[in-house]
């Protein structure tokens, strides 16, 4: 098997001229790939900070998919019809799949999946703040699909072109599957909006509650987002937080008319000078609080994840035991043949 040249930055003291030369070559090659908008693959040399940034972003993304199963899974047994139940199950199964695609991508950066899982359960890892809001009514399933998944799609489509190959490939798969999520949410809201006055009020209430958290999914404003610039220089991020947020607002403005509801923001307007959609002020203090673990559902979400992991221990044990048994059986059969 081919030997791999290790090019990790050695300690200063041992940095001899050869190693320094190799490192400079590797950095130059990396810079050239960035300039060409080429892709970095797992075995390529990459700067430590690039690897760290990707690992943080991809694992947080994976955690978000996994935690994101909870608000909707809670409604599977309460869905108003068999059709809605089947749709919701498919969607939650997709979120699990998306989490797994992303964990695989993160693993290629040298982090074990078990470590990532443990970090999440132990509260050491972050995930999207949006999943720490409660989903108290059926209309929330509509608002989550239409707004939360809508915002996620806006964010994720440009990530298909992220400079790190495995991340981009995972996102292509995710985006293909995500569009049904948004449409089913749209349909739930549309149906409620055309239903009884109570149903319409319930739909409007859900839209009102999810509007600001959905806009905050794009992250802090550009002038308060220290990592964005570097991520854009590395071709991980293709558009700034505010650019994506503005684009999303523009889409919602039109779509909400079709649904027959309104967005809870009087200050939405299209700015002719900047050619961007502007919205009212968002409560970034709340965003920071939720991110720091003090949102309405943080504790509940983590506890549920921990419980699910522990409840699944016997399944993992059984699968391992079954695999071991099958191996023994096969070995015996081989012995008999021989």
């Amino acid at each position: 098997m081919a030997q791999h040249t290790t090019l990790s930055p050695p300690a200063e003291s041992s940095l001899d001229a050869d190693a320094a030369g190799l490192l400079a070559d590797a950095q130059a090659e990396f810079d050239r790939m960035m300039a060409e908008d080429s892709r970095i693959e797992p075995r390529d040399w990459m700067p430590g900070a690039y690897r760290k940034t990707l690992l943080r972003q991809i694992s947080q993304h994976a955690h978000s998919e996994i935690i994101g199963m909870q608000p909707e899974a809670n409604w599977i047994s309460r869905a108003p019809s068999l059709k809605r139940k089947a749709v919701l199950m498919a969607k939650v199964q997709d979120e699990a799949g998306h989490g797994l695609y992303l964990y695989s991508a993160a693993e290629t950066l040298g982090q074990s999946r078990d470590t990532m899982m443990a970090d999440l359960i132990e509260g050491k890892a972050r995930y999207s703040s949006i999943f720490n809001y409660p989903a108290p009514t059926w209309a929330d399933m509509g608002a989550i699909g239409w707004m939360v998944d809508g915002a996620a799609i806006c964010n994720q489509v440009p990530l298909c072109r992220a400079s790190y190959g495995p991340y981009g490939r995972a996102m292509v798969r995710v985006c293909k599957e995500e569009s049904f999520h948004q449409r089913q949410g749209f349909e739930i809201l549309l149906e409620l909006s055309n239903g009884s006055p109570e149903q319409k009020a319930m739909a409007q209430d859900a839209v009102n509650r999810w509007y600001a958290p959905a806009l905050m999914m794009f992250g802090p404003p550009d002038d308060d987002s220290p990592n964005s610039k570097q991520s854009m220089a590395w071709n991980i991020k293709r558009f700034s937080n505010d650019e994506l947020r503005s684009r999303f607002v523009g889409m919602m403005v039109e779509q909400v008319k079709v649904i027959g509801l309104t967005l809870p923001d009087d200050e939405i307007r299209f700015d002719e000078d900047t050619r961007t959609w502007q919205h009212g002020p968002l409560d970034w203090g709340e965003f920071q609080e939720v991110l720091a673990g003090r949102g309405p559902c943080n504790a509940q979400r983590l506890e549920r994840r921990r419980q699910a992991h522990e409840d699944g221990a016997w399944v993992r044990e059984a699968a391992s035991a079954y695999a071991a048994k099958q191996r023994t059986k096969q070995m015996d059969e081989m012995d008999q043949v021989a």
Partner: peptide, 26 residues
């Protein structure tokens, strides 16, 4: 991982398993 990263930091094992029972090997 499929593509062991030659320059990556050694995977750090989480101190203590989250579950009470010891987990089988990954």
């Amino acid at each position: 991982p499929a593509d062991p990263a030659p320059t990556g930091p050694a995977p750090v094992q989480a101190p203590g398993s989250p579950a009470a029972a010891p987990e089988p090997a990954a």
